Simulated scan of single mutants.
Amino acid sequence: MVAVTAYRADDERYQRIEYRRAGRSGLVLPALSLGLWQKFGADYPSDRQREIVLHAFDLGITHFDNANRYGPPFRAAETFFGQVLRTDLAPYRDELILTTKAGNPIGPSPYLQGGSRKSLLTSLDHSLRDLGTDYVDIFYHHRADPSTPLEETVGALVTAIQQGKALYVGVSNYPTDRAHEAAELLRAAGVPLLVHQPRYSIFDRTPETSGLLELAATDGFGLVAYSPLAQGLLTDKYLDGNIPADARAAASAFLKPDQINDVYRERATALNKLAGERGQSLAQLALQWVLRRPEITTALIGASSTAQLDHNVAALAFPPLTDEDLAEIDRHGIHGTAQRT
């Protein structure tokens, strides 16, 4: 039997963060959302994870982004969140936006990856069991699968809605043309595409150069930006050339020490200087920059402490970036900086 705690959410939580509409839908999301991609697996203390999740909700962060891949091991982040939902957040389920994704490989079986009906709908059932909820608010196809007809993938997303297992659907990491095709197919089925989740940061301008920002406005879906801090490169963590033992670059498959090079440090230092002149940190500047675009509904942030959450949410309180600020960011925030070759 799972023990229920005495947690009570902060009464002022909805006065602490901005909410933004997801495209042309009726749904609003907090400007910053908590992603469980990293540091929410079995390799991280569950009591600290719980503290972070509950503090996020106290700050007005209602949107928690998950996936069947998140761990380690795979599905561990969903299992963890299911425990917190049962012990702490169950009274607030109607106030939460819970997501999951399927389609990225989580095993060698052909049924544990891709965009087939079997892969997506079986994974969704497993995720609902792990989360301990009857439905998720948003169900994503995690990555485009050229080997599966898009009509089949879209049909699976529609089925999830029809079965009451998801309220909205989204796609993630889709090329712009395929996202448009998915949006058209979904619209024809009466299930609009709510959101697309791309990587977007000062050092990764792909949504700008690919036309995705314009497509979001045209097709009416919101954008959920992930890696807005470029895996920690848009913080002051690596500016002195050292890599702290607990830093992502020391132990992550997504950021390697060779990315912390002189060119990166020169550009990040210049951006850090601009942030300091504005009275904020580089991370806060980077979050403001991503959120400057109206097409961006929310930016996903991770957290290793409640203090880090507080610091990032404080980015929303700074004055808007000026044209001069944006020009200076463009000088030093060059697409492809520190990307792996």
Results as ranks from 00 to 15, higher is better:
residue 225 A to L: 09
residue 257 P to L: 05
residue 231 Q to E: 10
residue 240 D to K: 01
residue 215 L to V: 00
residue 219 D to W: 06
residue 286 A to F: 07
residue 238 Y to K: 00
residue 251 A to I: 07
residue 274 L to N: 08
residue 275 A to F: 03
residue 253 A to L: 11
residue 282 L to N: 05
residue 276 G to F: 04
residue 217 A to C: 07
residue 206 T to A: 13
residue 278 R to Q: 13
residue 208 E to N: 01
residue 216 A to S: 14
residue 228 P to D: 10
residue 261 N to T: 06
residue 208 E to Q: 11
residue 224 V to K: 11
residue 240 D to P: 00
residue 265 R to Y: 02
residue 266 E to C: 06
residue 275 A to P: 01
residue 246 D to G: 13
residue 213 L to Y: 00
residue 261 N to K: 05
residue 205 R to D: 03
residue 227 S to D: 14
residue 226 Y to C: 13
residue 260 I to H: 05
residue 271 L to A: 07
residue 240 D to W: 00
residue 212 L to P: 02
residue 226 Y to I: 12
residue 228 P to K: 09
residue 285 L to Y: 10
residue 267 R to Q: 15
residue 226 Y to H: 15
residue 233 L to T: 10
residue 260 I to A: 05
residue 248 R to A: 08
residue 221 F to L: 15
residue 210 S to A: 11
residue 272 N to T: 10
residue 234 L to Y: 06
residue 237 K to D: 01
residue 250 A to M: 00
residue 267 R to M: 13
residue 243 I to T: 03
residue 219 D to H: 14
residue 285 L to I: 06
residue 271 L to E: 09
residue 223 L to K: 10
residue 247 A to W: 07
residue 266 E to G: 11
residue 272 N to S: 15
residue 266 E to W: 13
residue 254 F to I: 05
residue 283 A to C: 04
residue 213 L to A: 01
residue 264 Y to I: 09
residue 203 F to G: 01
residue 217 A to W: 07
residue 206 T to V: 09
residue 247 A to L: 05
residue 220 G to R: 09
residue 209 T to P: 01
residue 262 D to C: 04
residue 255 L to H: 02
residue 219 D to M: 15
residue 275 A to K: 06
residue 226 Y to F: 15
residue 251 A to G: 12
residue 253 A to T: 06
residue 245 A to W: 00
residue 223 L to V: 12
residue 285 L to M: 11
residue 222 G to R: 11
residue 248 R to S: 04
residue 233 L to F: 03
residue 223 L to G: 11
residue 273 K to R: 15
residue 212 L to F: 01
residue 217 A to L: 13
residue 256 K to E: 09
residue 248 R to G: 05
residue 259 Q to C: 08
residue 231 Q to V: 12
residue 222 G to I: 12
residue 253 A to C: 02
residue 227 S to L: 10
residue 280 Q to G: 08
residue 204 D to C: 09
residue 261 N to Q: 04
residue 287 L to I: 12
residue 256 K to H: 12
residue 233 L to Y: 01
residue 280 Q to L: 14
residue 214 E to A: 13
residue 207 P to L: 04
residue 258 D to L: 06
residue 278 R to F: 13
residue 210 S to K: 05
residue 238 Y to T: 04
residue 267 R to W: 14
residue 277 E to N: 11
residue 236 D to V: 02
residue 250 A to C: 02
residue 221 F to P: 13
residue 272 N to Y: 03
residue 264 Y to H: 10
residue 287 L to H: 02
residue 257 P to K: 04
residue 253 A to F: 12
residue 244 P to C: 02
residue 238 Y to A: 03
residue 233 L to K: 13
residue 226 Y to Q: 11
residue 216 A to N: 05
residue 268 A to V: 10
residue 209 T to H: 14
residue 216 A to L: 02
residue 212 L to R: 00
residue 205 R to V: 03
residue 257 P to S: 08
residue 220 G to S: 08
residue 265 R to E: 03
residue 268 A to K: 07
residue 214 E to M: 04
residue 284 Q to V: 03
residue 241 G to Q: 06
residue 251 A to L: 04
residue 207 P to R: 04
residue 220 G to E: 03
residue 257 P to T: 10
residue 259 Q to P: 14
residue 280 Q to C: 15
residue 239 L to F: 03
residue 241 G to C: 02
residue 266 E to N: 13
residue 280 Q to K: 11
residue 278 R to K: 15
residue 232 G to W: 06
residue 231 Q to F: 14
residue 231 Q to Y: 14
residue 215 L to Y: 00
residue 282 L to C: 08
residue 241 G to W: 03
residue 209 T to F: 14
residue 258 D to N: 13
residue 204 D to L: 14
residue 244 P to S: 09
